[in-house]
């Protein structure tokens, strides 16, 4: 999977932005966004509110036109999209949650209709989609009677009804509980497995784990784009081992570990002073080496010795901090 910023066209790319900017003035907008996403992948876009995620989506779906740089979606500039191109896109806007006075089925019929689907086509596809998003029992229920999670799943079904190749979902999991969020991400991954490309924005940093590729945004700029694992490595400066020692010589052990070859640094964990976090290039390769060194040279067997998978909250905070530091 291509996860690097590129400046050359690739026919397998579903999305690509090359130094794309949209300057609203007064510092607002997005600036120098560059990334590409191959077909059949999920790109998660993470960042705080107002960081430019929605603006980026609008640049990609043709609502906005960049003031600088280039945007290509399915091999074409969105500003030149015709009806056929638009039929290949699905879109779940952040704000719109369909019509409260229409039933689930009526909402879906409407959405299919605006894509020009005949009634018979819609009648064929709607039951399968309702099954897919688990809304079949609620098909006659009015939009206003649906829970927040059901409304989001209805939006998802609506965006998929015309069988798009590319789905933009702007914060589809906002304001819903973790279980429902997980179900929605299940749906997204099933779609990805069917060969569809998805761009999903979210404020929930943990959802980065569901993506094939994650873009971190801050103040209108893309801090980085990488796989979830790649982001961890970027944030932590490599991989991390957690080594917990019983006894009062933790400081001595920390110093010992820090002096080992291929160890970048060793730190006391802020939440547990008996634990040492060891930063290495490859956790799998270094763990047995370090355990052997501790045993042979210090006669110590740690009570805990394992690779540490920092949560994405921590990863995100570190990446943002690094970005801020680089600006200074």
């Amino acid at each position: 999977m291509d996860t690097t910023n590129q400046n050359h066209s690739n026919p397998d790319d579903a999305l690509r932005m090359d130094n794309a900017s949209l300057d609203f003035g007064g510092g607002a907008g997005v600036f120098d966004i560059s990334f590409s996403l191959p077909k059949g992948a999920i790109l998660g876009m993470i960042g705080p509110s107002g960081c430019g995620k929605t603006t980026t989506i609008r640049l990609l779906n043709g609502i906005y036109k960049p003031t600088a740089g280039d945007v290509q979606v399915l091999g074409k500039s969105p500003s030149k999209f015709g009806n056929k191109d638009r039929e290949r896109l699905g879109y779940i806007p952040q704000q719109f949650i369909l019509y409260p006075n229409l039933s689930v089925e009526e909402n879906l019929h409407f959405l299919g209709g605006i894509y020009g689907m005949s009634r018979s086509e819609r009648k064929t596809k709607i039951p399968a989609l309702l099954d897919f998003v688990d809304l079949t029992p609620a098909r006659k229920r009015l939009g206003q009677k649906l829970s927040g999670g059901m409304q989001r799943r209805l939006m998802l079904a609506g965006a998929l009804l015309h069988d798009p190749d590319l789905l933009f979902a702007d914060e589809p999991t906002a304001g819903i509980d973790p279980i429902l969020r997980a179900r929605i991400w299940d749906n997204f991954r099933k779609l990805r497995d069917q060969g569809k490309t998805l761009l999903v924005t979210t404020q929930y940093v943990g959802e980065a784990a569901y993506c094939d590729k994650v873009a971190v945004m801050r103040r209108g700029r893309m801090v980085t784009v990488d796989t979830p694992e790649g982001l961890r490595r970027q944030a932590m400066g490599g991989e991390v081992l957690n080594i917990q020692i019983d006894g009062d010589n933790v400081a001595e052990i920390q110093l010992f570990l820090e002096k080992q070859p291929r160890v970048k640094r060793a730190e006391r964990a802020p939440d547990n002073l008996q634990r040492i976090q060891v930063y290495v290039e490859s956790a799998g390769r270094e763990l047995p080496v370090l355990l052997a060194a501790l045993s042979e040279e210090k006669g110590i067997t740690p009570t805990v010795a394992e690779p540490y998978m920092p949560p994405f909250d921590e990863v995100f905070v570190r990446l943002i901090q690094q970005s801020e530091a680089s600006e200074l």
Partner: peptide, 17 residues
């Protein structure tokens, strides 16, 4: 106000429709 136009503008729709 509902934000529906955002979706309409992405769909293959003309305002006349």
């Amino acid at each position: 106000q509902m934000g529906a136009y955002e979706m309409f503008r992405v769909a293959p729709l003309r305002f006349a429709h």
